[in-house]
Design a protein around this nucleic acid. Structure first.
Lengths: 217, 217
DNA sequence: CTATGTGAACAGCTTCACAGCG
DNA sequence: CGCTGTGAAGCTGTTCACATAG
């Protein structure tokens, strides 16, 4: 019923959580699951779960709950992770290399297929797993490679001072979604979606709750 | 005026952003900055900036703006990052090792002082920078080390299936804030604060906006 | 009788608009 | 005058409670 435009952003975020939890239930051979069960596993109210899922369609069966494999398929389709998405990565530093080896991306339908860096000492080096190595390419080849392989998502893990420039290049290379690890607010064209992960900020949040105002210590 | 309890969570998150932006202005030798300037740099409204800062105290000077160095100090104090916080890390996999080498933590007042893993092949190995190596210790020594060094924050980057058990151990070791990279909802005692970073979910978010409903392609 | 989907009530956050201070 | 701090208004998201379907 809901037509994609009125869906609250928090609901979209939780959709990923539902998928993961559904997969866990599926692995345990649950055939159906109720909004209550799903909610308890994720610390959400049952009403929240129902309302969220209802934004995307009518998946539930009154008196029964949600059929697990069916809902998994639906959610994957909605999120576009029913097919594998090719991803490029820019910045072969510590974090970049860790992300290339990160299994979690592959598990959820993302494959890093190209790596770029502008450090001459890194270009040409193979990184990643031995069985499927990735050769680091110079940044100026990004547009060419992205277009040829039709890559539309990119991971950005270069130093903060380079991030804005690289984001611009990514846009010009046809990248439409950027996962940004640099601690800056990227200015990009409106058709490009940016999702930022700021590692230090998360620690600062913890610090606030531990050391901030209202603490006895 | 506001007494720490009524502060909206989003405002606390933005406080980190303000600090970072203020430091940028400070590096450019700005003496004062207005809520408008701060807001523009972070894509926030000026009213938002003023309201957020006002939750934590009266820092502004009417007709002038905010004095940059003064506000930096205040915000650091509020967040508890005016002093260096010791942090331990559990899980010396790819991500863990990348985080240990990550400069961003140090820059913002966090120092990783101990690393734990339960893989016998890793225990005893030195990782991190050559000048200040960290020797990987077995998990069962965590409580001892944490108490001796008075460590209250921890980074958790073990595989999903081990995360809950390790989180429990961290609680028992006196850790009060956990930065969790495992894709699970951790169940912890209420006095423990958890902040989770789920890398795959961020990519899924991008996928939704790129490949999800309402896309022409 | 069980569990969904959903309008209505509620809560929380953001924006507005302006009084007040330097 | 310029810019902050803040009640009031507005908006977005969450919870409630119930009609409805199996």
């Amino acid at each position: 019923m809901a037509k994609a435009e009125n869906i609250p952003t928090p609901a979209v975020k939780r959709l990923s959580l539902y998928l993961r939890q559904l997969e866990t239930f599926d692995a345990k051979d649950y055939k159906t699951v109720s909004s209550k069960q799903l909610g308890e596993a994720l610390s959400l109210s049952d009403a929240q779960v129902r309302k969220d899922l209802a934004y995307f369609g009518q998946f539930g069966h009154p008196g029964v709950g949600y059929r697990v494999p069916e809902l998994i398929q639906q959610v994957r389709r909605i999120m576009g992770t029913d097919k594998i998405s090719k991803v490029l990565l820019v910045g072969a530093g510590n974090l970049g290399r860790a992300l290339i080896s990160f299994r979690g991306f592959t598990k959820r339908g993302f494959e890093i297929v190209a790596v770029f860096d502008n450090n001459p000492e890194k270009i040409g080096i193979d990184i990643g797993s031995v069985d499927r190595p990735l050769r680091i390419k110079p940044l100026d080849r990004m547009a060419e490679v992205a277009r040829k392989s039709n890559i539309r998502m990119g991971v950005l893990c270069v130093p903060a001072q380079d991030a804005q420039a690289v984001a611009k290049s990514m846009g010009e290379a046809g990248i439409r979604g950027i996962l940004n690890f640099a601690p800056v607010r990227l200015q990009v064209d409106p058709q490009i979606t940016v999702s930022s992960v700021d590692l230090a900020i998360h620690l600062e949040q913890l610090s606030f709750f531990l050391n901030g105002p209202g603490q006895s210590a």
